[in-house]
Design a protein around this nucleic acid. Structure first.
Lengths: 213, 213
DNA sequence: TTGAGATTGTGAAATTAATCACAAGGGGAG
DNA sequence: CTCCCCTTGTGATTAATTTCACAATCTCAA
């Protein structure tokens, strides 16, 4: 399989974090080898889908035996870019921004919140030993100094587009946007949208259907 | 188009909350009529996809003119089950649970957090005039009394399965699960998973690809 | 009332994703 | 070393989703 030429469904990548989690569990339980059947069952996908997903990234298993947990784990880390630490700058030190800064799930996946930014002067300064809220004007300087790659947008909807532009100008390569608006940014910028309302309204729709509204 | 027999892509429903948002904006701006072209552009989909999505729910537009904003808005509310209030009970009054309880985005979409539940006695009692944290043992009683339909699971991973079972026993029809585990529940129970780590790791993968890890 | 211009609604075609089914190996017993 | 059993890896097939392209039909102006 020639590297770099393979194309695969977009959904494939979004299943890798799930694979990563169950593999981590197997690892904790000192299970060395696991079959696609076993693992797929736990994740909630079909075994053939799991095998197909993995096959896009090479021949990662052992025929007749299964998958080596430790090996697959390092491979998935590589695929997800978790083989080195990535630093985040959170823009918008409100409730959501602060909650994310304190969320341990990020660090567990190699993602480190290294700075916060806010326009509100009252919020500037150190939060604890590791973390400081900077004025938005220091975005470029601190990005450079701290090696930030990803800007997390936790600002109000109306500010999001402007803040996105500032982040791009400041040299961020990727945006993780929590504001419920589509951002207009140059095509080379990676944008991931996070929208909790989509999930609950999807649920609400199913509920309405089930109950006859 | 015979009601109830139409099938449509799962992704269709997840685009409706986005349509709802831009329509709300048009409404605020007192724009009465909007074309699929205009609206699709704002949402970030193709016009034909927007038209197709809407077509699954009837003939909602006006040929030669576009879509009536107010009418489409009420239709979408109907489709998403937002035409009446839905009440949520949050199980797990930790940081995430409390943050959700205070999140205005829910109420704006007709979703009302009406109670919280926790095993920790120290958390029991009123939070404010409207909201109280109850012991988990009151799940069934309070669900009945307050008319709760959706259980929001904001408990630690290890507790999630057990809590899901309690919620089902207590009569909840739907679960909105923030714990990073697959839940085993009866098939008639509606489950929506919310997993922030999937989003950021997808982004991390793209970043790794772009930068060559 | 008529006709030009616009935009929807929707079958058909194209594309993308998931599943199937089995050939290709690797492991382990004897 | 050989053979049998097991599970992966993957073309081929089927299914799902999106896009296309144009007929249907509504609006508006004269």
């Amino acid at each position: 399989m020639p590297e770099g030429l393979v194309t695969f469904p977009k959904a494939t990548i979004s299943r890798f974090p799930l694979y990563f989690r169950v593999l981590t569990e197997y690892n904790h339980q000192n299970i060395a080898l696991v079959s696609s059947e076993e693992m797929a069952q736990k994740v909630g996908v079909t075994p053939s889908q799991l095998r197909k997903d993995l096959s896009y990234f090479g021949s990662l298993g052992i025929r007749g035996a299964g998958y080596d947990v430790a090996y697959l784990l390092t491979k998935i880390k590589e695929i997800l870019g978790m083989d080195r630490k990535r630093r985040l700058g959170i823009i918008g030190a409100g409730k959501l921004g602060m909650a994310l800064a304190g969320y341990s799930g990020l660090k567990q996946h190699g993602l480190e919140v290294s700075a916060l930014f806010d326009t509100d002067q009252a919020k500037w300064g150190a939060i604890n030993e590791q973390l400081t809220v900077f004025p938005l004007s220091e975005l470029a300087v601190q990005r450079e100094r701290l090696g930030l790659e990803i800007a997390v947008l936790t600002v109000p909807k109306v500010a999001a587009q402007r803040v996105a532009e500032l982040a791009v100008e400041a040299g961020f390569a990727a945006l993780w946007n929590f504001a419920p608006v589509r951002l207009e940014v140059p095509p080379e910028i990676i944008v991931q949208y996070e929208d909790i309302v989509v999930g609950i309204l999807t649920l609400s729709h199913h509920l309405a259907r089930k109950l006859g509204t």
